[in-house]
């Protein structure tokens, strides 16, 4: 799981152009949106693309996205349970 979280942080930094950040700057359990990383709606769409591109996961139920994208830890958990990489 630790390895997965580190990979995910690196991928998020790259796809969201968070150039001034390192994986160490991102708290596993901090909120991704508004607080914490302060991501916005366009970033959310990029995360959906990332899940599909890197882990072949298509989010079928938009209602679950709020919980999946709550933090790095919840994202990693979801990928581990549903991903194919």
């Amino acid at each position: 799981m630790e390895h997965m979280i580190l990979d995910l942080k690196k991928q998020i930094i790259e796809v969201l152009n968070l150039e001034d950040m390192t994986p160490e700057d991102i708290d596993d359990n901090a909120p991704l949106f508004v607080e914490g990383l302060g991501l916005d709606s366009i970033d959310a769409l990029e995360l959906i693309v990332l899940m599909e591109k890197q882990y072949s996961i298509k989010l079928e139920d938009p209602g679950k996205s709020k919980e999946i994208f709550r933090s790095i830890a919840t994202m990693a958990q979801f990928i581990q349970e549903n991903g194919t990489q």
Partner: peptide, 9 residues
């Protein structure tokens, strides 16, 4: 085929 929303905007 992975259209980027961040590039699209």
């Amino acid at each position: 085929y992975f259209p980027s929303p961040a590039v699209f905007v």
